[in-house]
Design a protein around this nucleic acid. Structure first.
Length: 456
RNA sequence: GGCGAGUUGGCGGAGUGGUGACGCAGCGGAUUGCAAAUCCGUGCACGGGGGUUCGAUUCCCCCACUCGCCUCCA
């Protein structure tokens, strides 16, 4: 069995993955707040952890991995969106979840084992909060329930901060009912016009962080193997999750290995609406960039490094993928992924190295291994994607015509007709291959049948 | 101000205490009527300064620059 080593943010070291139960390897990844289309940045952790999910399934068996990625469907951003649009919250979240599945599916992302919605686990959240209050880790104040960070000595360990330092930074929300400025909300009151659930502290709704603690407990248990997300979540979200879960269940370990991906940039700059470089995944797909190309570009940078999305990278990725797909299409029905790629992925998900190994498979023309390796990487399913298939057209008459013209030209040394035909074919997106062996016409991805007929 | 990440050839991007992958582009060659495609070959880099070491791009320190987080933005 391959030895999987992963960088653990918590210990700041690469550690060997030693599953608590190798018959059920468990991973939790923070999913989206569903109020709008997923943007290109959102897609990075999705692709990164999907690739890890695929590796785990390959190593431990598809039935021995449990992957949980939540939907946050109760949140102030959603409430705001509902107020702005006049649409019901449920309609917004349902629509957004549907979009999410469509867009991520286009990127070759597998559906996780469980995709829990926060609103389906309110009871579990209330139970956990009640326990924290009962044990003195949390307190009620003005309808809110707050976690008292001073009660958890290791608060800040994940992100390398101390409560004192953070207070000195003085960029925390000022709220008079907080005992410590760093205390965070577990439960907050809802007015009648806002979504709310009955609780021991009155009608209200959960704070953001508690859902992940409650849902990971319900679906993965007190201790599980991997917890992932973007590094912007490291503080405060993950720090707060740890505090809640460890205090609620001190006998559990919560997550053993914490993984965080770096952020995405666009053409060297932070993606932002004001810079006009803000794209949703849907936008990019609509522009005609195939999902496999997006995925390839993401995989070409290691997940712990900042990644720059550029049009040039997409162009090169498409070129490479077309070449590989043409080879993979010839692969045998049975095969296995390349061990060099499995090893690269096993070394802290070195996807860039994995792609380099694929180049070697391509060079060696090992079409079957390439095929199953691309499948492991999520770059193709059973078949080559439609967009990468050659247009199904019969150019044999044109080939014969060009061959005849060429033969004649060889005799009389007048190549004008050959050159004219060649130029016309090229203009119509047909690749012209002439050699001693004969003439071959290959329709390219920009093949235009109408243009071909018009110009010949 | 605090915490963290990064700085490798023209571009992208791995990696290592001792001849620095791979891809794209470039250059040379084979091939071609000329090309294209393909194949073969090839030049080019470890931000700056110290230190440890027989030897550092790789370890340590300092500096510069870039970026992220600290505002429930992945």
């Amino acid at each position: 069995m391959a030895d999987i080593r992963l960088w653990n943010t918590k210990t700041r070291r690469k550690e060997r993955l030693d599953p608590i139960d190798s018959g059920n390897v468990r991973m939790y990844v923070c999913g989206p707040t569903v109020y709008d289309r997923a943007h290109m940045g959102n897609a990075r952790p999705v692709i990164v952890f999907d690739t890890l999910f695929r590796l785990l399934r390959h190593v431990y068996g598809a039935d021995h991995v449990t992957y949980v990625r939540n939907f946050t469907d109760v949140d102030d951003k959603i409430i705001r969106r509902a107020e702005e649009s006049g649409r019901p919250i449920g309609a917004i979240t349902e629509e957004t979840i549907r979009w999410y599945h469509e867009d991520m599916g286009a990127l070759g992302v597998l559906t996780p084992t469980h995709e829990p919605r926060a609103t389906a686990f309110i009871g579990e959240m209330i139970a956990m909060i009640a326990g924290l209050v009962a044990d003195g880790f949390a307190y009620e104040a003005e309808g809110h329930v707050l976690f008292a960070v001073e009660k958890y000595a290791e608060y800040g360990a994940l992100s390398g901060r101390s409560v004192e330092d953070m207070i000195a930074g003085a960029r925390v929300e000022v709220a008079p009912y907080k005992r410590n400025p760093m205390d965070f909300v577990l439960w907050k009151p809802s007015t009648d016009d806002l979504p709310g659930w009955d609780s021991p502290w009155g009608r209200g709704r959960p704070g953001w962080h508690i859902e992940c603690s409650a849902m990971s407990l319900a679906l993965l248990g007190e201790s599980f193997d991997i917890h992932g997300g973007g590094n912007d979540l490291m503080f405060p979200h993950h720090e707060n999750e740890i505090a809640q879960s460890r205090c609620a269940h001190p006998e559990g370990e919560f997550a053993r290995i914490w993984m965080h991906n770096e952020m995405l940039q666009v053409e060297g700059k932070k993606m932002s609406k004001s810079l006009g470089n803000f794209f949703t995944v849907h936008d990019v797909l609509e522009q005609g960039v195939p999902g496999e190309v997006i995925r390839f570009v993401y995989l070409s940078t290691h997940y712990r490094k900042p990644m720059d999305w550029t049009a040039e990278k997409a162009r090169q990725a498409e070129k490479t993928l077309r070449k590989w797909y043409a080879q993979a299409a010839q692969g045998a029905a049975e095969g296995k992924p390349y061990v060099g790629v499995v090893n690269a992925l096993s070394d802290d998900l070195n996807t860039a190295k994995a792609i380099a190994e694929c180049h070697q498979l391509s060079l060696a023309d090992d079409v079957s291994t390439l095929r199953y390796t691309l499948q492991l990487l999520g770059l193709m399913e059973d078949e080559v994607p439609e967009w990468a298939k050659s247009p199904d057209v019969d150019l044999s008459e044109h080939e014969a015509r060009l061959a005849a013209a060429r033969a004649a030209a060889m005799e009389n040394k007048d190549f004008s007709e050959v050159d004219r035909l060649k130029a016309a074919y090229l203009a119509a997106g047909v690749e012209v291959r002439m050699s001693k062996g004969g003439v071959e016409l290959v329709p390219g991805d920009d093949f235009d049948a109408a243009k071909l007929e018009a110009s010949i």
